[in-house]
Nucleic acid binder design. Structure first.
Lengths: 218, 218
DNA sequence: CTTGCGGTTGAACGCCGGGTCAATGCAGAG
DNA sequence: CTCTGCATTGACCCGGCGTTCAACCGCAAG
């Protein structure tokens, strides 16, 4: 294969896969053009021929990670759950499971996160992804607010969605640094118990709605 | 000052302060021995004379950051609050305020966090700090569990403490990457509302305790 | 004043990384 | 088969890094 020509697309994909391997193994700091080339079985010059610079390779790798890492997307089977609260819990569980099953990928993701602090382009992409992530929790958050307008008086859907995201990101951040001590199951049980408060509210809302319905019908 | 002798302790402190400035400004990746020396107004050789290697300098910088960054310690005025829930809320508020007022310091902290993924020594120090942090929430968590043993049936104090930490770390992680979009005030209001659920439980426990007290007295 | 010790300097070294480019060879068009 | 274009190679350059070390002070003891 090495030394043979290939289509632009195939080469870029091949190089990105190699970059992902290296990045996941060595970290973003340890990622070098030469290492990526070696991993792909190509010359270092070719990597830069197709990507222009290391910087552009890294940005492309971020796109690849975000596209491949389904972490931040809601799959159909979860979207189909009608009860917003059940949807939230399902989402929470799936995210926790993923980050315990793919630590390398999540570590790389947080490497990018930290890099985004100083790199405007990476930061922008991360912001977009974070927005999409929070947006996924918005419908559920709004449902909760509608259920208890008094108790959640000044609370915005934005804020509640951000709190939901905190559960996951905060859990990831802890379990990445402390995989031995930090017990994801314990964490999930506690998070679920807190969320169960919301379930109570949600059911109360449904009950009221039903009562209003029967009252009007009567 | 440059060219003059100084005590071991004073020099190390001077260099560490410079390292902190550079690290906060350029990130841990951008931190070089030469930059630190320039920032301190000293020669590069002297930095290594006092710290042995860049690696050791970085570890010392981490200690400095953890000691200086009071983020992870409970101050006396908060420890003195008797109501565990009020203590928690006070702690939450203070942490949020800090990370919005000292973004440079928190960015550096997360740089270390990411570095800890690959560096055993840094990881160990981070684990210790994280443990101490969670431990601060333990008493409050246990109080909550005692208040509602049924509702929080299988929940451990560990797990609940970890969730509390998630609120803060998750908030930090979001606001670092997205300071414009992410609204800390909105977040805090939402988090407080969720926590208010716990306050209800806590008060119910107190009420029961009072009732038991009067009953026994009667 | 001389000596010695230890903090201090900065030039020098070796290494490695990103980026360049002349040379190579493969494939498809003519 | 020849020619042309382009993917591909890897030696090379350059800059910057961590680290070393011979030389240089400046002070205190003798």
């Amino acid at each position: 294969m090495p030394g043979q020509k290939a289509s632009e697309e195939a080469r870029r994909a091949q190089i990105l896969r190699a970059a992902y391997e290296v990045g996941a193994r060595e970290g973003l700091d340890g990622l070098t053009v030469r290492l990526v080339a070696a991993e792909a079985g190509l010359s270092s010059g070719l990597v830069l021929f197709h990507f222009g610079s290391k910087e552009e390779l890294i940005v492309a790798l971020l796109d690849y990670v975000l596209a491949t890492t389904t972490v931040l997307h809601i799959t159909d089977d979860i979207a189909r759950i009608t009860q917003p609260l059940d949807r939230l819990l399902a989402l929470l569980k799936r995210e926790m499971n993923r980050l315990s099953s793919e630590p390398k990928r999540i570590r790389l993701f947080f490497d990018f996160w930290a890099k985004g602090f100083r790199n405007p382009l990476i930061r922008a992409k991360m912001q977009t992804e974070l927005d999409r992530y929070r947006e996924a929790f918005r419908p559920m958050a709004e449902e909760v607010l509608r259920a208890e307008p008094v108790r959640f008086d000044h609370v915005s859907a934005q804020g509640l969605a951000a709190v939901a995201v905190s559960f996951i990101k905060g859990c990831a951040v802890q379990s990445m640094i402390d995989p031995g001590q930090f017990d994801i199951d314990e964490y999930l049980v506690a998070a679920e118990a807190l969320m169960a408060q919301l379930r109570t509210l949600s059911l109360a809302r449904s009950a009221r709605a039903r009562r209003r319905g029967t009252a009007r019908r009567a």
